[in-house]
Design a binder for these strands. Structure first.
Lengths: 215, 215
DNA sequence: CCGCTTTTCGATAGACGTATAGATTCTATA
DNA sequence: TATAGAATCTATACGTCTATCGAAAAGCGG
Protein backbone atom coordinates (compact mmCIF):
# COMPACT_ATOMS: atom_id res chain seq x y z
CA UNK A 1 0.00 0.00 0.00
CA UNK A 2 2.42 2.62 1.20
CA UNK A 3 4.34 3.47 -1.96
CA UNK A 4 7.99 4.18 -1.41
CA UNK A 5 8.37 7.86 -2.01
CA UNK A 6 12.11 8.12 -2.64
CA UNK A 7 13.33 10.86 -0.37
CA UNK A 8 14.60 14.00 -2.01
CA UNK A 9 18.25 13.96 -1.05
CA UNK A 10 19.02 16.86 -3.29
CA UNK A 11 19.06 19.62 -0.70
CA UNK A 12 21.73 22.24 -0.73
CA UNK A 13 21.69 22.41 3.07
CA UNK A 14 24.67 20.26 3.95
CA UNK A 15 23.51 19.31 7.42
CA UNK A 16 21.75 15.96 7.60
CA UNK A 17 18.64 17.55 9.03
CA UNK A 18 16.03 17.40 6.32
CA UNK A 19 14.51 14.02 6.97
CA UNK A 20 14.51 14.36 10.72
CA UNK A 21 12.73 17.66 10.25
CA UNK A 22 9.98 15.89 8.41
CA UNK A 23 9.70 13.48 11.29
CA UNK A 24 9.45 16.24 13.88
CA UNK A 25 6.91 17.95 11.72
CA UNK A 26 4.76 14.84 11.49
CA UNK A 27 5.05 14.33 15.22
CA UNK A 28 4.01 17.92 15.82
CA UNK A 29 0.97 17.51 13.64
CA UNK A 30 -0.25 14.37 15.36
CA UNK A 31 0.66 15.46 18.89
CA UNK A 32 -1.22 18.69 18.29
CA UNK A 33 -4.32 16.89 17.13
CA UNK A 34 -4.51 13.94 19.49
CA UNK A 35 -2.27 14.93 22.35
CA UNK A 36 0.98 13.25 23.34
CA UNK A 37 -0.46 10.28 25.17
CA UNK A 38 -3.19 9.91 22.59
CA UNK A 39 -0.62 9.51 19.87
CA UNK A 40 1.06 6.25 19.00
CA UNK A 41 4.39 6.17 17.25
CA UNK A 42 2.52 4.20 14.61
CA UNK A 43 0.32 7.21 13.93
CA UNK A 44 3.37 9.40 13.35
CA UNK A 45 4.84 6.83 11.00
CA UNK A 46 1.56 6.68 9.09
CA UNK A 47 1.74 10.38 8.29
CA UNK A 48 5.10 9.79 6.66
CA UNK A 49 4.24 6.51 5.02
CA UNK A 50 7.03 4.77 6.84
CA UNK A 51 7.27 1.96 9.35
CA UNK A 52 6.85 2.60 13.04
CA UNK A 53 10.22 1.10 13.91
CA UNK A 54 12.03 3.35 11.44
CA UNK A 55 11.29 6.38 13.55
CA UNK A 56 13.75 5.12 16.10
CA UNK A 57 16.57 5.73 13.69
CA UNK A 58 15.97 9.43 14.32
CA UNK A 59 14.69 9.47 17.88
CA UNK A 60 15.67 7.46 20.89
CA UNK A 61 12.17 7.64 22.33
CA UNK A 62 8.74 9.11 21.92
CA UNK A 63 9.53 11.47 24.76
CA UNK A 64 12.57 12.76 22.87
CA UNK A 65 10.33 13.53 19.92
CA UNK A 66 8.00 15.48 22.19
CA UNK A 67 10.90 17.43 23.55
CA UNK A 68 12.10 18.25 20.03
CA UNK A 69 8.65 19.45 19.05
CA UNK A 70 8.29 21.54 22.19
CA UNK A 71 11.69 23.11 21.69
CA UNK A 72 10.72 24.26 18.23
CA UNK A 73 7.48 25.48 19.71
CA UNK A 74 9.45 28.08 21.62
CA UNK A 75 11.73 29.07 18.73
CA UNK A 76 11.72 32.77 18.17
CA UNK A 77 9.43 33.63 21.06
CA UNK A 78 12.09 34.60 23.53
CA UNK A 79 14.32 36.38 21.03
CA UNK A 80 11.43 38.40 19.65
CA UNK A 81 10.16 39.33 23.10
CA UNK A 82 13.54 40.41 24.37
CA UNK A 83 14.17 42.43 21.25
CA UNK A 84 10.97 44.35 21.88
CA UNK A 85 11.94 44.99 25.47
CA UNK A 86 15.28 46.42 24.43
CA UNK A 87 13.79 48.55 21.68
CA UNK A 88 12.75 52.16 22.01
CA UNK A 89 9.23 53.27 22.72
CA UNK A 90 6.68 53.89 25.42
CA UNK A 91 5.81 50.86 27.60
CA UNK A 92 2.28 50.61 26.26
CA UNK A 93 3.56 50.68 22.71
CA UNK A 94 6.05 48.01 23.56
CA UNK A 95 3.31 45.93 25.07
CA UNK A 96 1.39 46.15 21.82
CA UNK A 97 4.44 44.98 19.94
CA UNK A 98 5.02 42.20 22.44
CA UNK A 99 1.52 40.97 21.81
CA UNK A 100 1.92 41.06 18.06
CA UNK A 101 5.27 39.29 18.29
CA UNK A 102 3.78 36.65 20.56
CA UNK A 103 0.84 35.96 18.29
CA UNK A 104 2.89 35.65 15.14
CA UNK A 105 4.36 32.18 15.76
CA UNK A 106 0.95 31.05 16.86
CA UNK A 107 -0.18 31.74 13.34
CA UNK A 108 2.81 30.44 11.45
CA UNK A 109 3.72 27.38 13.47
CA UNK A 110 0.44 26.34 15.02
CA UNK A 111 1.21 22.70 15.61
CA UNK A 112 4.51 23.28 17.35
CA UNK A 113 3.16 25.99 19.58
CA UNK A 114 0.05 24.03 20.40
CA UNK A 115 2.11 21.06 21.47
CA UNK A 116 4.37 23.27 23.51
CA UNK A 117 1.45 24.84 25.31
CA UNK A 118 -0.70 21.78 25.82
CA UNK A 119 1.74 18.90 26.10
CA UNK A 120 4.94 20.14 27.64
CA UNK A 121 3.67 19.12 31.02
CA UNK A 122 4.11 15.48 30.05
CA UNK A 123 7.84 15.86 29.59
CA UNK A 124 10.18 14.44 32.21
CA UNK A 125 11.19 16.96 34.83
CA UNK A 126 14.60 17.62 33.31
CA UNK A 127 13.43 18.81 29.92
CA UNK A 128 10.44 20.54 31.46
CA UNK A 129 12.83 22.65 33.45
CA UNK A 130 14.80 23.50 30.34
CA UNK A 131 11.64 24.74 28.68
CA UNK A 132 10.59 26.46 31.87
CA UNK A 133 13.50 28.82 31.44
CA UNK A 134 12.09 29.96 28.12
CA UNK A 135 8.61 30.39 29.50
CA UNK A 136 9.92 32.46 32.33
CA UNK A 137 11.96 34.61 30.00
CA UNK A 138 8.84 35.45 28.04
CA UNK A 139 6.87 36.14 31.19
CA UNK A 140 9.67 38.35 32.42
CA UNK A 141 9.61 40.37 29.21
CA UNK A 142 5.91 41.12 29.55
CA UNK A 143 6.16 41.81 33.25
CA UNK A 144 9.14 44.05 32.75
CA UNK A 145 7.33 46.23 30.24
CA UNK A 146 4.31 46.47 32.49
CA UNK A 147 6.48 47.44 35.43
CA UNK A 148 8.11 50.10 33.29
CA UNK A 149 4.68 51.44 32.51
CA UNK A 150 3.80 51.64 36.17
CA UNK A 151 7.10 53.32 36.90
CA UNK A 152 6.67 56.03 34.29
CA UNK A 153 3.06 56.56 35.21
CA UNK A 154 1.52 55.38 31.96
CA UNK A 155 0.00 52.34 33.64
CA UNK A 156 -2.37 52.78 36.51
CA UNK A 157 -0.85 52.60 39.99
CA UNK A 158 -1.75 49.58 42.03
CA UNK A 159 -1.68 47.25 39.05
CA UNK A 160 -0.36 43.83 39.95
CA UNK A 161 2.19 43.47 37.18
CA UNK A 162 2.45 39.72 37.42
CA UNK A 163 -1.29 39.32 37.33
CA UNK A 164 -1.57 41.61 34.34
CA UNK A 165 1.17 39.65 32.60
CA UNK A 166 -0.65 36.39 33.23
CA UNK A 167 -3.81 37.94 31.87
CA UNK A 168 -2.21 39.02 28.60
CA UNK A 169 -0.40 35.78 28.07
CA UNK A 170 -3.49 33.75 28.92
CA UNK A 171 -5.46 35.74 26.41
CA UNK A 172 -2.84 35.33 23.70
CA UNK A 173 -2.07 31.67 24.30
CA UNK A 174 -5.74 30.79 24.29
CA UNK A 175 -5.81 31.59 20.59
CA UNK A 176 -4.03 28.34 19.86
CA UNK A 177 -7.02 26.39 21.13
CA UNK A 178 -9.73 28.39 19.44
CA UNK A 179 -12.07 26.65 17.07
CA UNK A 180 -10.78 26.69 13.52
CA UNK A 181 -13.53 29.08 12.50
CA UNK A 182 -12.34 31.65 15.03
CA UNK A 183 -8.70 30.99 14.34
CA UNK A 184 -9.38 31.84 10.74
CA UNK A 185 -9.70 35.49 11.67
CA UNK A 186 -6.96 37.75 10.48
CA UNK A 187 -4.18 37.49 13.05
CA UNK A 188 -3.11 41.10 12.60
CA UNK A 189 -6.63 42.15 13.49
CA UNK A 190 -6.57 39.94 16.57
CA UNK A 191 -3.25 41.37 17.67
CA UNK A 192 -4.52 44.90 17.16
CA UNK A 193 -7.65 44.37 19.20
CA UNK A 194 -5.80 42.57 21.97
CA UNK A 195 -3.27 45.36 22.14
CA UNK A 196 -5.95 48.00 22.27
CA UNK A 197 -7.77 46.11 24.96
CA UNK A 198 -4.71 45.84 27.15
CA UNK A 199 -3.44 49.34 26.50
CA UNK A 200 -6.75 50.91 27.42
CA UNK A 201 -7.29 48.42 30.19
CA UNK A 202 -4.04 49.31 31.88
CA UNK A 203 -3.73 52.96 30.97
CA UNK A 204 -3.41 55.31 33.91
CA UNK A 205 -4.83 58.48 32.47
CA UNK A 206 -8.51 59.04 32.05
CA UNK A 207 -8.48 58.79 28.33
CA UNK A 208 -6.47 61.19 26.23
CA UNK A 209 -3.84 58.68 25.21
CA UNK A 210 -6.05 56.03 23.66
CA UNK A 211 -4.33 53.92 21.08
CA UNK A 212 -5.08 54.52 17.44
CA UNK A 213 -8.09 52.45 16.47
CA UNK A 214 -7.51 49.06 14.95
CA UNK A 215 -7.70 49.03 11.18
CA UNK B 1 -1.93 -3.87 51.71
CA UNK B 2 -4.99 -1.92 50.75
CA UNK B 3 -7.11 -2.11 53.86
CA UNK B 4 -10.81 -2.44 53.26
CA UNK B 5 -12.24 0.86 54.30
CA UNK B 6 -15.85 -0.10 54.94
CA UNK B 7 -17.86 2.42 53.03
CA UNK B 8 -20.03 4.74 55.05
CA UNK B 9 -23.45 3.59 53.98
CA UNK B 10 -25.08 5.71 56.61
CA UNK B 11 -26.09 8.57 54.39
CA UNK B 12 -29.51 10.04 54.67
CA UNK B 13 -29.51 10.76 50.93
CA UNK B 14 -31.52 7.81 49.69
CA UNK B 15 -30.09 7.78 46.17
CA UNK B 16 -27.20 5.37 45.69
CA UNK B 17 -24.91 8.13 44.52
CA UNK B 18 -22.32 8.59 47.21
CA UNK B 19 -19.80 5.99 46.14
CA UNK B 20 -20.00 6.77 42.46
CA UNK B 21 -19.33 10.37 43.38
CA UNK B 22 -16.12 9.35 45.02
CA UNK B 23 -15.17 7.53 41.85
CA UNK B 24 -15.84 10.52 39.64
CA UNK B 25 -13.91 12.64 42.05
CA UNK B 26 -10.91 10.36 41.91
CA UNK B 27 -11.11 10.25 38.15
CA UNK B 28 -11.25 14.04 38.02
CA UNK B 29 -8.19 14.32 40.17
CA UNK B 30 -6.09 11.95 38.08
CA UNK B 31 -7.38 13.14 34.71
CA UNK B 32 -6.57 16.70 35.76
CA UNK B 33 -3.05 15.81 36.73
CA UNK B 34 -2.01 13.38 34.02
CA UNK B 35 -4.52 13.98 31.24
CA UNK B 36 -7.11 11.53 30.01
CA UNK B 37 -4.86 9.40 27.84
CA UNK B 38 -2.08 9.58 30.39
CA UNK B 39 -4.36 8.05 33.01
CA UNK B 40 -4.90 4.33 33.43
CA UNK B 41 -7.99 3.01 35.11
CA UNK B 42 -5.55 1.41 37.50
CA UNK B 43 -4.38 4.86 38.59
CA UNK B 44 -7.93 5.88 39.37
CA UNK B 45 -8.48 2.72 41.37
CA UNK B 46 -5.27 3.36 43.30
CA UNK B 47 -6.57 6.69 44.54
CA UNK B 48 -9.53 4.88 46.03
CA UNK B 49 -7.66 1.85 47.27
CA UNK B 50 -9.83 -0.42 45.23
CA UNK B 51 -9.24 -2.83 42.38
CA UNK B 52 -9.11 -1.66 38.82
CA UNK B 53 -11.88 -3.98 37.72
CA UNK B 54 -14.23 -2.74 40.42
CA UNK B 55 -14.53 0.61 38.71
CA UNK B 56 -16.55 -1.04 36.00
CA UNK B 57 -19.33 -1.66 38.45
CA UNK B 58 -19.94 2.11 38.27
CA UNK B 59 -18.82 3.00 34.78
CA UNK B 60 -19.22 1.20 31.53
CA UNK B 61 -15.98 2.61 30.16
CA UNK B 62 -13.17 5.03 30.79
CA UNK B 63 -14.73 7.35 28.26
CA UNK B 64 -17.96 7.39 30.25
CA UNK B 65 -16.00 8.45 33.30
CA UNK B 66 -14.44 11.29 31.34
CA UNK B 67 -17.85 12.41 30.19
CA UNK B 68 -19.14 12.38 33.75
CA UNK B 69 -16.22 14.45 34.94
CA UNK B 70 -16.59 16.94 32.09
CA UNK B 71 -20.29 17.29 32.72
CA UNK B 72 -19.64 18.24 36.30
CA UNK B 73 -16.98 20.58 35.06
CA UNK B 74 -19.69 22.67 33.47
CA UNK B 75 -22.10 22.56 36.41
CA UNK B 76 -23.20 25.98 37.43
CA UNK B 77 -21.36 27.87 34.73
CA UNK B 78 -24.23 28.29 32.34
CA UNK B 79 -26.84 28.98 34.99
CA UNK B 80 -24.68 31.60 36.67
CA UNK B 81 -23.84 33.29 33.39
CA UNK B 82 -27.41 33.44 32.20
CA UNK B 83 -28.56 34.77 35.54
CA UNK B 84 -26.12 37.64 35.22
CA UNK B 85 -27.32 38.38 31.70
CA UNK B 86 -30.92 38.58 32.87
CA UNK B 87 -30.08 40.70 35.89
CA UNK B 88 -30.20 44.48 36.02
CA UNK B 89 -27.20 46.69 35.53
CA UNK B 90 -25.01 48.39 32.98
CA UNK B 91 -23.31 46.09 30.46
CA UNK B 92 -19.84 46.77 31.82
CA UNK B 93 -21.01 45.98 35.33
CA UNK B 94 -22.58 42.80 34.09
CA UNK B 95 -19.35 41.89 32.39
CA UNK B 96 -17.55 42.27 35.69
CA UNK B 97 -20.06 40.00 37.34
CA UNK B 98 -19.80 37.50 34.51
CA UNK B 99 -16.07 37.33 35.04
CA UNK B 100 -16.42 36.82 38.76
CA UNK B 101 -19.06 34.16 38.23
CA UNK B 102 -16.90 32.41 35.70
CA UNK B 103 -13.84 32.36 37.92
CA UNK B 104 -15.63 31.05 40.95
CA UNK B 105 -15.99 27.40 39.88
CA UNK B 106 -12.40 27.51 38.70
CA UNK B 107 -11.48 28.07 42.30
CA UNK B 108 -13.86 25.66 43.95
CA UNK B 109 -13.82 22.76 41.54
CA UNK B 110 -10.41 22.99 39.94
CA UNK B 111 -10.04 19.40 38.89
CA UNK B 112 -13.40 19.15 37.18
CA UNK B 113 -13.01 22.40 35.33
CA UNK B 114 -9.47 21.61 34.32
CA UNK B 115 -10.53 18.32 32.86
CA UNK B 116 -13.41 19.95 31.07
CA UNK B 117 -11.16 22.56 29.54
CA UNK B 118 -8.19 20.41 28.67
CA UNK B 119 -9.62 16.98 27.98
CA UNK B 120 -13.09 17.34 26.56
CA UNK B 121 -11.67 17.18 23.08
CA UNK B 122 -10.94 13.49 23.59
CA UNK B 123 -14.59 12.65 24.05
CA UNK B 124 -16.43 10.92 21.24
CA UNK B 125 -18.23 13.29 18.93
CA UNK B 126 -21.64 12.69 20.47
CA UNK B 127 -20.81 13.77 24.00
CA UNK B 128 -18.54 16.49 22.73
CA UNK B 129 -21.50 18.01 20.98
CA UNK B 130 -23.56 17.84 24.14
CA UNK B 131 -20.89 19.77 26.00
CA UNK B 132 -20.49 22.10 23.08
CA UNK B 133 -23.98 23.38 23.75
CA UNK B 134 -22.91 24.49 27.21
CA UNK B 135 -19.75 26.13 25.95
CA UNK B 136 -21.69 28.03 23.37
CA UNK B 137 -24.25 29.15 25.93
CA UNK B 138 -21.49 30.68 28.03
CA UNK B 139 -19.91 32.31 25.03
CA UNK B 140 -23.27 33.71 24.04
CA UNK B 141 -23.76 35.22 27.47
CA UNK B 142 -20.48 37.09 27.31
CA UNK B 143 -21.00 38.14 23.70
CA UNK B 144 -24.51 39.29 24.44
CA UNK B 145 -23.40 41.58 27.22
CA UNK B 146 -20.64 43.01 25.07
CA UNK B 147 -23.07 43.64 22.24
CA UNK B 148 -25.38 45.37 24.66
CA UNK B 149 -22.51 47.60 25.67
CA UNK B 150 -21.81 48.50 22.08
CA UNK B 151 -25.49 49.17 21.49
CA UNK B 152 -25.85 51.54 24.44
CA UNK B 153 -22.59 53.26 23.66
CA UNK B 154 -20.68 52.22 26.77
CA UNK B 155 -18.36 50.02 24.75
CA UNK B 156 -16.29 51.53 21.99
CA UNK B 157 -17.77 51.33 18.50
CA UNK B 158 -16.02 49.00 16.12
CA UNK B 159 -15.31 46.42 18.79
CA UNK B 160 -15.54 42.89 17.44
CA UNK B 161 -17.80 41.42 20.09
CA UNK B 162 -16.91 37.84 19.38
CA UNK B 163 -13.22 38.61 19.49
CA UNK B 164 -13.60 40.47 22.75
CA UNK B 165 -15.56 37.56 24.18
CA UNK B 166 -12.86 35.13 23.18
CA UNK B 167 -10.29 37.39 24.78
CA UNK B 168 -12.09 37.49 28.13
CA UNK B 169 -12.79 33.81 28.21
CA UNK B 170 -9.27 32.96 27.18
CA UNK B 171 -7.94 35.11 29.95
CA UNK B 172 -10.25 33.58 32.53
CA UNK B 173 -9.87 29.97 31.47
CA UNK B 174 -6.11 30.27 31.44
CA UNK B 175 -6.21 30.57 35.22
CA UNK B 176 -6.90 26.87 35.48
CA UNK B 177 -3.48 26.10 34.03
CA UNK B 178 -1.49 28.60 36.03
CA UNK B 179 1.32 27.38 38.20
CA UNK B 180 0.13 26.58 41.70
CA UNK B 181 2.04 29.54 43.09
CA UNK B 182 0.08 31.93 40.88
CA UNK B 183 -3.17 30.10 41.39
CA UNK B 184 -2.72 30.66 45.09
CA UNK B 185 -3.54 34.33 44.63
CA UNK B 186 -6.81 35.47 46.04
CA UNK B 187 -9.42 34.70 43.41
CA UNK B 188 -11.53 37.73 44.29
CA UNK B 189 -8.53 39.90 43.59
CA UNK B 190 -7.97 38.19 40.27
CA UNK B 191 -11.58 38.65 39.29
CA UNK B 192 -11.44 42.32 40.25
CA UNK B 193 -8.36 43.03 38.23
CA UNK B 194 -9.61 41.11 35.21
CA UNK B 195 -12.88 42.99 35.35
CA UNK B 196 -11.16 46.32 35.60
CA UNK B 197 -8.89 45.44 32.72
CA UNK B 198 -11.77 44.52 30.48
CA UNK B 199 -14.03 47.35 31.52
CA UNK B 200 -11.38 49.97 30.87
CA UNK B 201 -10.16 48.12 27.83
CA UNK B 202 -13.55 48.16 26.19
CA UNK B 203 -14.95 51.42 27.53
CA UNK B 204 -16.02 53.90 24.90
CA UNK B 205 -15.57 57.18 26.73
CA UNK B 206 -12.22 58.81 27.22
CA UNK B 207 -12.14 58.13 30.91
CA UNK B 208 -14.83 59.45 33.21
CA UNK B 209 -16.53 56.14 33.79
CA UNK B 210 -13.56 54.13 35.02
CA UNK B 211 -14.45 51.34 37.36
CA UNK B 212 -13.77 51.73 41.03
CA UNK B 213 -10.23 50.61 41.73
CA UNK B 214 -9.71 47.05 42.86
CA UNK B 215 -9.35 46.68 46.60
C1' DC C 1 30.34 -2.36 -10.42
C1' DC C 2 32.19 -2.33 -5.40
C1' DG C 3 32.16 -1.52 -0.91
C1' DC C 4 30.79 1.74 2.66
C1' DT C 5 27.34 4.52 4.98
C1' DT C 6 22.72 5.83 5.66
C1' DT C 7 18.16 4.65 5.89
C1' DT C 8 14.33 1.61 6.14
C1' DC C 9 12.27 -2.75 7.03
C1' DG C 10 10.36 -7.16 9.29
C1' DA C 11 9.82 -9.54 13.36
C1' DT C 12 9.12 -9.57 17.94
C1' DA C 13 9.96 -9.15 23.08
C1' DG C 14 7.87 -7.44 26.89
C1' DA C 15 5.09 -4.28 29.27
C1' DC C 16 0.79 -2.31 29.91
C1' DG C 17 -4.16 -1.23 29.48
C1' DT C 18 -9.25 -1.92 28.89
C1' DA C 19 -12.89 -4.59 29.69
C1' DT C 20 -15.47 -9.03 30.88
C1' DA C 21 -16.97 -12.97 33.79
C1' DG C 22 -17.87 -15.36 37.59
C1' DA C 23 -16.78 -16.01 42.47
C1' DT C 24 -16.71 -13.82 46.92
C1' DT C 25 -17.67 -10.75 50.60
C1' DC C 26 -20.36 -7.31 52.76
C1' DT C 27 -24.77 -5.16 54.54
C1' DA C 28 -29.27 -4.80 55.69
C1' DT C 29 -33.30 -6.72 56.75
C1' DA C 30 -36.83 -10.23 57.45
C1' DT D 1 -29.34 -16.26 61.19
C1' DA D 2 -30.78 -16.98 56.52
C1' DT D 3 -31.23 -14.55 52.40
C1' DA D 4 -31.19 -11.09 48.77
C1' DG D 5 -28.89 -7.56 46.63
C1' DA D 6 -24.99 -4.45 46.40
C1' DA D 7 -20.21 -4.02 46.08
C1' DT D 8 -15.78 -5.74 45.43
C1' DC D 9 -12.49 -9.21 44.20
C1' DT D 10 -9.54 -12.59 41.30
C1' DA D 11 -8.30 -14.03 37.01
C1' DT D 12 -7.73 -13.34 32.48
C1' DA D 13 -8.68 -12.56 27.44
C1' DC D 14 -7.15 -9.70 24.17
C1' DG D 15 -5.46 -5.78 22.07
C1' DT D 16 -2.01 -2.11 21.65
C1' DC D 17 2.18 0.21 22.38
C1' DT D 18 7.19 1.20 22.86
C1' DA D 19 11.53 -0.13 21.82
C1' DT D 20 15.25 -3.37 20.14
C1' DC D 21 17.76 -6.22 16.77
C1' DG D 22 19.60 -7.84 12.79
C1' DA D 23 18.76 -8.02 7.88
C1' DA D 24 17.73 -5.72 3.64
C1' DA D 25 17.75 -1.90 0.59
C1' DA D 26 19.07 2.58 -1.10
C1' DG D 27 22.45 6.16 -2.06
C1' DC D 28 27.11 7.37 -3.21
C1' DG D 29 32.23 7.99 -3.98
C1' DG D 30 35.74 5.72 -6.36
Amino acid sequence: MTTHVPRARLVRNSKPLRRSDEIIDAAARVFAERGYHGTSTQAIADVLGMRQASLYYYFTSKEAALEAVCLRGTDGFVEAAEAVVKSKGAPLEKLARLIAAHLSPIETRQDYVKVFINERRYLPAASRRRLGRKTRAIERAFEHVILAGIADGSIVRGTDARLAMLAVLGMCNAVINWRPSDQGKDMARIAAQFAKLMANGLAANGGGARMARAT
